[in-house]
Amino acid sequence: MPKEKRFFREGGRRVVKAFAKFHPVTLFAYFAVILLFSMFIRNPVTVCLSLLGGAAFCSTLTNKREKLDDIKFYIPLTVLIAITNPLISHNGKTPLFFLNGNAFTLESIYYGVFIALMIIAVRMWSKSYSRIVTSDKFLYLFGRFAPKTALILSVALRYVPMMKAQAKKIKDAQKTLGLYSKGSYADNVVSTVKVYSALIGWSLENAVETGKNMKARGWGHGKRTSFSSFRFRAADAVVLVLLAVFSAAMLISLRTGRLAFSFYPEPTALPADPVSVFAYVCFALLSFIPFFIESEENIRWNCLRSKT
């Protein structure tokens, strides 16, 4: 049984993610669309909305320490990009001061902050994607089009934990023999390379054995089948329809230039006519879909949980 389908509690918190239960097609389409829009619409409002939606959803996936690590990483990153951007681009009409004859402009700082927010938004969504669209879902999606590729990837995915265990065995054996125990940098490199080298021999032999085995059992004769337990539910259809409607609205407003914004030479006024506002609302709803789904499940979970 896949891990996310097992219901268990972790300090009263829900571990199973409601969004992860959607069909892989729905999930992949959703993440592809939201990532494309976050990267390609260079408008401060949509980027902030995407960041908020992404951060809200990501916060339901991470524990306290990961959240703290993220904050500790992204706030300095924003400051760093905001400060260094004026050193790289000297566009803009409001010079704050001059450095080696180059203007250090206010607009460049704004643009630096904007770049940082865009990068953080994309990273938040990517992190959520990695947690939700796990390798089994990815293989289910693309395995049908490329069966050999799918075979290689799924075998390799199984090999990684197996090799990890084997690497530990090899390392322990070397330690017991008293090799490379000084702990200097060079020692570390050489000993790890030795472990790695032994691992390579073991793995290649293992792969050939498995191949011979599969051939002996008749691999490649007849049609192959594959097992999966993903179901396309009504909720999937709803999310896909919402996705299509919102993206159509966004594409139309993009095409007609309703979301155009530029930072140089000075920030243009934010587009605020009814059509742009409509596009913003659509995008806000779009980027909060996963968070809404998680929140709804949270409420239900807390109502039904036994209060002992």
Binding site: V155, M163, A207, T210, G211, G220
Partner: peptide, 12 residues
């Protein structure tokens, strides 16, 4: 199939 498995092992 041996070739496929070898590629898988090298990737891993």
């Amino acid at each position: 199939v041996t070739y496929l498995l070898l590629i898988a092992a090298l990737t891993a």
